[in-house]
Design a protein around this nucleic acid. Sequence first.
RNA 1: GAGCCGCUAGCUCAGGUGGUAGAGCAUCUGCCUUUUAAGCAGGUGGCCCCGGGUUCGAGUCCCGGGCGGCUCACCA
Length: 491
Amino acid sequence: MEEKSVEYQQRLTKLEDLRKAGVNPYPNDFKPSAECAQVLKDFGELTKEDLEAKNISLSIAGRIMAIRDFGKASFIQVKDRTGRLQAYIKKEIVGEEAYSLFKAMDMGDIIGLEGALFRTRTNELTVEAKRLRLLAKGLHPLPEKWHGLTDIEARYRQRYLDLMVNPEVKDVFLKRTAIVKYLRDFLCSRDFIEVETPMLQPIAGGAAAKPFKTFHNALGMELCLRIAPELYLKRLVVGGLERVFEINRNFRNEGISTQHNPEFTMLEFYQSYATYEDLMDLTEEMISSLVQEVHGAKKIDYQGTALDFTPPWQRITVKEAVLKYSKAPEEIFTDRDKALKFSKELGLNIPEGLSHGKIITEIFEAAAEHRFIQPTFVTQYPVDVSPLSRKNEKDPSLVDRFELLVMGREIANAFSELNDPVDQKERFLSQLKEKAAGDVEAHEMDEDFVKALEYGMPPTAGEGIGIDRLVMILTNSPSIRDVILFPQLKR
RNA sequence: GAGCCGCUAGCUCAGGUGGUAGAGCAUCUGCCUUUUAAGCAGGUGGCCCCGGGUUCGAGUCCCGGGCGGCUCACCA
């Protein structure tokens, strides 16, 4: 359909005319000597007279974002990856032939030009072109210059257009890159080493989620896209890589929302001879310094809410949180029936065979989780929702685990790792029972992982940080789709 | 999976109670050698998301479908 548009047909004709005239509309031998932002920075202070005296010659390349045509002379805006610079094309200077070539150029074309800097009457730093070349013809008209591209579906499906015309979108993704780099550097500076572990796994372990399934033809076996790298990273810890991390994609075959994309990016790291408490300290330092670095302050605005990442952050147990934010009697923590009864008072629809710990977790999520707007570590989760975590020394119904909540959302999840192979095997077995009882997200048995633990894993703490959600908060983005270049869409 | 909202020119958007489909930008033609969303004059451009129905007549009303957004449920 769109190929029939008048603009497209006109540009196709221009393309053919250029080829007939012996001009290659897609050459690749132009090397710009300068970039827009650097030119503005280096020469932005020079006066009209300075520029005339120095006669600074340079060449730039980029996309034509605006054309203001005066007949025998034109102003254009050229945009490269660094910014925009104005250029002036004058028939008298470039010559008859080049000017008619220029007249055939359109908004959105990629061009290269060279000339000297000067200042216009309105004092704008401008390149006065002596020569110009078409570097790539664009066949589609650009979105509107003032409103840009606002249709949200078009922005996701044609992200290149979104990036081209909406500068704040590019800023978000540059920031995302900066955030990932900062985290990577932070961990490397503490002697963590970055690794890559399988995306295709015979058993999708390390989290409670539905996997995507696929099939390897040559091996004749079913494989899953990973839902977490956890079990492989811990195998590496067994192997003696005492500090490891991975920043990579996880895949979960579940719903899509402003907080969920089927593939999302997770930072997972493991540190031997550390506890979950050590990781709270590390996380506080890593993320608060990240916020400072990326944002220039530890206080930020997120969708109208002031967030303060200045350490220390609140630390509270699941039990304390439930008691604080609901009218739950304390006995719910020791008596499953009382917990079940209270969950019904909250209007929760709890399936029959649900374990005590899961009921407590449900109550916590319904009554308290959303209350934690400022960065908060919630600790001491029930053992039956944490099949890979180390049990608490004093209370074996709990595990040494925390979740970091910001805006009531889980940003990170960490625990002291379970390294007792016998206990781990029992936990897997009890997960199998839950699976048999109908819990589709219960953890699979992974004998090979248990075997690795049987060789001895040093006491270790590990953590996962949801990068997309962290980026959302640091870029003030309301939807996860705003921080993923190509979010999942239908068809 | 459920509820609510949206889909009209390349882009951004108007189109009370049904009556030949509009504007701005972009584009084309003409004028213009210092503009800043340049200006002036004149043009081109539409399966109004798709399919049924009601009606003399549907962009508009009804039914079904598609895609998208938000909220909810599951999840990080």
